[in-house]
Design a binder for these strands. Structure first.
Lengths: 279, 279
DNA sequence: GCCTAGGTCCCGTCA
DNA sequence: TGACGGGGCCTAGGC
């Protein structure tokens, strides 16, 4: 079925050709329990034709189809749809951190009536993906102009741990010298490279969370790659993580690699650990 | 600063001791541009003390602190906070698919006034994590009873590709017989194991998307592990993915492993490819 | 509960 | 632009 409205109105969130000033310029516009036509009208005015980018939210009963890297169908249920300024679209069920369906940034939303349903098509042309959300009942719709220039500042990433070791290699072992960071090998980038107190080369792989089989294999490959140029030379490999499962520990042992418990779970909690218990 | 309200009211989303019927039993309750006290009052009545689980959404200007596996701070900005039925809490900025801050399911939200800010503390006791969201201005708040029992049905997962090969191993090569699925080795689970037309053992690793270095290493480890018991025996390793970067291809070659292009990007698109272009 | 592996992963970074 | 690796990854499935 062809979208009726396609012929008359520019319906994409970007590049609207006609500017009709919205009824009001408030930060948030909304409708409570609108019909599908009313919803479409609202979205066209408040989002599609708005000069200010707006985030759209729709709460209601919908069905979702997706086709792209995979293909999916989600039957009727009440969800929240959010279409963001950058085209990102996410559909949230009443539980779970992950959206049940989504399109990442760069997608483009089109709004129309189809079979008496308020339908949002979200197409990601570059990724050759599409998602269609059809609402039969809308509890609430709103469009918000959101001003947010802040970016989250995080401490505790792998980068920070590597920094810490760079600053003070003795944290790993006495006499250790680090000479290179992100050293390139055929199988990837080595986090840290240096020499121990006996001038034996050391490869260090750092992970911010629990050691995995894959990390052990990665480290092994690095060591193997370095030996290839200098076959008899001894090269040590150390995996640094805050925690390691028994299985992975044995694997490291088999490979002749070493493990150092290292992270900063401790520092993160020490100062306010008791207050966490307070809650 | 101690939350004032803690002394009198049970404020957690689960296990409220006192039931005060909400003002109205509608599916969605909301306030437009409420003050912080009004918001707290609303949340206590509509979410904390509601007999029906409700999803809470707050749109407004907030600051966010997080502490747990890492530590983060997000300065003032306009965002959307969603607290779901299962304790999941996500904070969305006006762009990007990922929440800027969150707690996964199993967390517990507490609501209070702190320094004249409407504050939501979300604590994940098991993970020893906490997040605090403080609103200085609330554009809109609403609480919705959401009924959604549907689960998304997806086709195109790795499982589906493995199924396809199981059904018809000739898709990989003539004469191939599959004898085991998810065969255990020390380094992990082998997707598919079998024998080629010359009765040479074959390990097959399947990925639904592009081949990675890590997948190549994984496969190599499987083959190495199997050889260990039977050192001279020839064992083939085949990586099956829809696409492979040149680098990974060379790596496979170095390791004496093979590659088969295999996926179903094609099938997924063939039937409706033109209509995608229509948008 | 821990551990393992997949994901329509997303996302930043760098060649 | 593609490739590569991290992530407070999340989530499902085994044991």
């Amino acid at each position: 079925m062809r979208p009726l409205i396609h012929k008359n109105l520019p319906l994409e969130t970007e590049g609207a050709a006609v500017f009709i000033p919205p009824a009001s310029m408030g930060v948030v516009e909304y409708l409570y329990g609108p019909g599908v036509e009313e919803t479409l009208d609202f979205v066209v005015r408040q989002v599609v034709q708005s000069p200010e980018k707006r985030v759209l939210m729709v709460l209601g009963s919908c069905q979702v189809r997706y086709q792209g890297r995979a293909r999916s169908f989600l039957d009727w249920g009440e969800r929240i749809l959010i279409v963001k300024e950058d085209g990102t679209s996410i559909i949230h069920q009443p539980s779970g951190r992950e959206p049940v369906n989504w399109q990442p940034h760069g997608a483009r939303a089109t709004y129309l009536l189809q079979d008496r349903l308020f339908t949002v098509h979200v197409v990601h042309r570059k990724n050759r993906e599409r998602m269609a959300v059809s609402f039969k009942k809308i509890e609430m719709v709103f469009a918000a102009r959101m001003d947010d220039r802040a970016r989250v500042q995080i401490v505790g990433m792998e980068r920070d741990i590597v920094d810490k070791i760079m600053e003070n290699p003795e944290l790993i072992e006495p006499g250790l010298r680090i000479t290179q960071r992100e050293k390139k090998t055929r199988s990837g980038l080595i986090d840290l490279f240096g020499y121990d107190r006996h001038h034996v080369p050391v490869v260090i792989e750092v992970k911010r969370s629990q050691a995995t089989i894959s990390a052990a294999q990665q480290l092994r490959m690095y060591v193997t790659d370095l030996k290839r140029g200098n076959d008899k030379a001894r090269i040590r490999g150390i995996l640094c993580t805050p925690r390691i499962p028994e299985m992975v520990c044995r694997l490291l042992d088999d490979y002749g690699l070493e493990y150092r418990e290292f992270g900063w779970q401790h520092q993160l909690f020490d100062d306010q650990q008791t207050s966490l218990e307070d809650y």
